[in-house]
């Protein structure tokens, strides 16, 4: 099992390049996902707070 894991990490001597490429892709895409979700959330809170304010103004 351990042998399999080390050879898996080693990737025939190219481990740094291969894991680097996969790791970087994961990092960039996950950052993009988090940023997009936060963008959506902040836009929704802005819209809600503005709507609340308008309601209060009417009453």
């Amino acid at each position: 099992m351990l042998d399999f894991l080390t050879s898996f990490m080693n990737m025939g001597g190219y481990g740094y390049y291969i894991w680097g490429a996969f790791g970087l892709s994961a990092f960039v895409l996950i950052t993009l996902i988090i940023q997009s979700l936060k963008f959506l959330e902040s836009s929704e809170t802005q819209l809600h707070s503005l709507k609340e304010k308008e309601k209060n103004n009417e009453t």
Binding site: S36, L40, Q46, K51
Partner: peptide, 23 residues
């Protein structure tokens, strides 16, 4: 993944547009 992100971002942009109009 692209379409998922696109849907999230377009919804956010539409919200921001609405906010701008209300302001």
């Amino acid at each position: 993944l692209y379409f998922w992100l696109l849907f999230i971002r377009t919804r956010a942009e539409l919200n921001i547009n609405k906010v701008r109009k209300m302001l």
